[in-house]
């Protein structure tokens, strides 16, 4: 267990450094690091501190959030298909963010953007939980997710199409696929407070989720308050997904892929899967964000394209596996 933690931490650190060093400006390793730490006020310092550092930080924060939220939702719903992007939480967070930007709320009040995204995510989580609670089958969960995400997606498109700004309609792609290009420290500060709250709430779920593997009655007998657990899960997920989506758009499949890969390595214990998926998610988004810059440097390839290329086949595999098990 300790070995896994060390390996994941090292992977995150290595990828974080790589993320700082990859970019179209093409600067040497020692040069860029000295510009980052010493800061001579030259253009390279500006590149390192204002462009690459926020990008790498956001990749870690958002990846960790998505991995953690995925692991927590799967633990609670006891369903490996639960994932914030697939079940429409990211989509409804994006709708909240788009509303905040295009009503002018985010311009009037800086925290308006993440808070509206939080409200959107909260609505999305609640809807899905109501439609497909712990008793529901995978089928109802996925159906509810499809309904919520397509509704949120079409409302997002509607708002963007109604905007007087000619660029707004093209941004539908950003909100559906997500990107970390040209984000700034302002976005880091905007997302961090809500994420901290969310991480705190979700980290507390470990014991309850472990107990829940024995069934709801057993968990209650062990003194786990299911209502409290659910409340923490809903608010925590909405906080992390909302804050992340507000600044980087909806990035799908991270919360599906990472817990799936790590589950056998932690002995399928939800409490351990929480921290493992947090680190794994950070590593996955960092790697994906490096890949978009290396594969098509001039094109602003969206992050969600890469995560979906990895995630969608896995998703199909999981569905097939579930079908086989039922027979």
């Amino acid at each position: 267990m300790k070995r896994l933690a060390v390996a994941l931490t090292l992977a995150v650190i290595a990828l974080f450094m790589a993320s700082l060093l990859v970019g179209p400006a093409g600067v040497g390793l020692s040069e860029s690091l000295s510009a980052l730490f010493r800061g001579d006020g030259g253009p390279l310092t500006l590149v390192m501190r204002e462009i690459r550092l926020p990008r790498a930080l956001l990749a870690v924060m958002i990846g960790a959030s998505l991995g953690l939220a995925g692991a927590a939702m799967q633990g609670y719903l006891r369903n490996p298909l639960a994932e914030p992007g697939l079940i429409g939480v990211s989509g409804s967070a994006a709708f909240g963010a788009v509303l905040a930007i295009h009503t002018g709320l985010s311009a009037a009040f800086a925290l308006g953007l993440p808070l509206m995204a939080l409200a959107g995510a909260l609505l999305g989580v609640l809807l899905v939980m109501l439609l497909a609670g712990p008793g529901g089958t995978s089928l109802t969960l996925i159906l509810a997710g499809i309904a919520v995400s397509s509704l949120a997606g079409s409302l997002t498109s509607l708002v963007l199409n109604l905007s007087p700004n000619p660029f707004a309609a093209n941004e539908i792609v950003f909100w559906m696929m997500g990107s970390l290009a040209d984000r700034s420290m302002a976005h880091v500060w905007l997302a961090l407070p809500l994420m901290l709250v969310g991480w705190g709430l979700l980290a507390l779920l470990g014991r309850g989720l472990d107990a829940l593997t024995l069934g709801e009655d057993a968990a209650e007998a062990m003194g786990v308050g299911l209502r409290g657990l659910r409340l923490k899960l809903v608010i925590g997920t909405a906080c992390v997904v909302g804050a992340g989506t507000a600044v980087a758009g909806a990035i799908g499949f991270v919360g599906l892929v990472v817990p799936h890969i790590l589950r056998p390595l932690v002995g399928a214990r939800p409490s351990r899967l929480l921290w493992a998926s947090t680190l794994g998610g950070a590593a996955m988004v960092l790697a994906a964000d490096i890949a978009v810059r290396v594969v098509l440097p001039a094109r602003d390839l969206k992050l969600g394209v890469l995560t979906a290329l990895v995630g969608a086949p896995l998703f199909l595999h999981l569905i097939l596996k579930q079908r086989r098990e039922r027979i």
């Binding site: 930007i101 295009h102 905007s163 007087p164 700004n165 660029f167 941004e171 950003f174």
Partner: peptide, 9 residues
């Protein structure tokens, strides 16, 4: 910039 907000701008 055009009226209305956009990420692009």
């Amino acid at each position: 910039p055009y009226p209305g907000a956009s990420r692009s701008e």
